[in-house]
Amino acid sequence: MVELETLKPFFAERQDVLNEILGRYPDYGRRSAVMPLLWEVQREERQVNEARIHEIAEILGIQPTEVKGVMSFYSTYHEHAIGKYHLQICSTLACSLAGSDEMYDFISEETGLVNGETDRQGLFSIQKVECLGSCTTAPVLQVNDTYYERVGKSRCQTLLEAFRRGEMPEPWRERYGDNEGAEKAKPLQNTIKTGGNA
């Protein structure tokens, strides 16, 4: 409660951002702004605490409980602050088949953290996440909002070193297939006719 009174309202000095977000939706759909408002707070504060929940509820004219219900439904809003580098390791099948379990073990060992933890300095948080939609370029490591695709062991090492230096490398987008540029992905000419188990 004390916090509620001393914390400055988040949107007090961001009226333009607030109005832009509210302006996206029709009058009868004001409540739609709940997710973008939560995003706005989280991007800035790396969490959405209870004071912000109350503030958003007030803005939208709904109950704080409803905001909390919505927020807690999704896996990417956080009630507690996450680290500066939020290492999200995709663990779903395609990535798992490409070694994401080993990547998790490696990152866990390197950072000394296990799934869901944040280090004391607030540098790293590590989290196993579900399918990030990068199955053809697995395994994928999402750091904050950036995708690093096809992260092999040495790349993973390089990435962690960069983060420790405070750098955020450019995203890696490595692909085969039409998603690499359709020109480069002509079918192979020699059709292989074998390969089935039967």
Binding site: I53, H54, Q63, P64, T65, E66, K68, G69, S72, F73
Partner: peptide, 19 residues
Amino acid sequence: DEVLDFIERGGHTFIGTVE
């Protein structure tokens, strides 16, 4: 009065309030 809602989702869902 929407003062009670589900919090979290799936098998972790529980009812709660922040009011």
